[in-house]
């Protein structure tokens, strides 16, 4: 029972971390390797807002999500746009960006002293005799909410439909007058904002440390690759697979294995089925 409850919580956390990454990749084929950095940056900004500037929880959080979203857009607009279409350069450039943010944050003092975000509603309840604190329930609720929200957004809003159009067939969408670059900007902004949301919900469960930034990136990449790059359904399924695998190994071995599980999942997937569980790129890619 314990494993099931914690497995679900862990899986949803993974999904939250990965959604932003999948979104950006799915829409604009952009591997945003600065994703983990935005996550930590958001945690740090929220901390500054709440603890240093005393702006109040709600204001800080909203402001953080907004600012990080804008930063993501700026990163695309002024920066990644120039290496667009060169996948390796995109990876190196966004990874370098992430490194820059993370290491600058580390230098700024994000080490030694512990930085924590407050939980929204303290306390624990018992679910099937398993103690779960409210924050973890909130994680599950928000995770589900975001998935539902994104689904509605892409199904029923103009912008969402445009994004989906770009995701499916960039050439055709551009011919219909959808601006691919504008959509990519929106997508990176949205993806970064999602990273911020994830940070705000998940970080109260731990400390804000730079290493977590790298870890989130690994988890996000793992989920996306296992699920098939750019596939949402795949990403969610993969979160559950990796999430449960992690909880299982952790409960039988040590916590070091969490990252190892994710990495092994990536490597195994790439070896067995490089396109992932729901990938559909492979065949198109290999046109002879």
């Amino acid at each position: 029972m314990e494993i099931i409850v914690y497995g679900i919580v862990n899986s949803v956390s993974l999904a939250l971390m990965a959604l932003g990454f999948t979104l950006v990749y799915g829409i604009s084929r952009l591997p945003n390797f600065a994703h983990g950095a935005f996550y930590i940056l958001a945690g740090y900004l929220a901390w500054v807002g709440i603890r240093s500037l005393n702006m109040g929880y709600i204001v800080s959080v909203l402001l953080t999500i907004f600012v990080v979203g804008i930063l993501g857009m700026a990163m695309y607009r002024f920066f990644l746009i120039r290496v667009r279409g060169m996948p390796i350069s995109e990876i190196i450039a966004s990874y370098a960006m992430g490194l820059f943010i993370l290491e600058a944050l580390r230098w700024k003092g994000l080490k030694g002293m512990t930085f924590t975000l407050p939980v929204i509603y303290p306390g624990t309840i018992f679910l099937f005799d398993v103690p779960v604190d409210y924050q973890r329930l909130l994680v599950v609720a928000i995770g589900a909410g975001i998935v539902a929200g994104l689904w509605l957004f892409t199904k029923f809003t103009r912008l969402g439909l445009a994004l989906r159009g770009i995701a499916q067939d960039e050439q055709a969408a551009m011919m219909l007058g959808i601006d691919s670059d504008a959509m990519a900007t929106v997508a990176t902004g949205l993806g970064s904002a999602l990273a911020a949301v994830a940070a705000i919900v998940l970080l109260p469960l731990g400390n804000i440390v730079v290493e977590a930034g790298y870890q989130v990136l690994i988890f996000a990449v793992a989920v996306c690759i296992v699920g098939g790059l750019g596939s949402w359904a795949g990403a969610i399924l993969a979160s559950f697979i990796i999430g449960f695998a992690q909880i299982l190994t952790v409960s039988y071995m040590q916590s070091h294995f969490q990252v190892v599980v994710a990495l092994l999942a990536i490597i195994l997937t790439l070896i067995a089925k490089p396109s992932g569980l729901f990938g559909r790129q492979k065949q198109l890619e290999e046109r002879v």
Binding site: P31, I218, Q254, V259, V260, L263, I266, P274, E285
Partner: peptide
Amino acid sequence: RGVYFAIVTLMYPLVLSRLVEA
């Protein structure tokens, strides 16, 4: 190819160091 190879190679040193640790 390309992106996939880059991603996996990025992971390898991390995995090995975690394994040594674990």
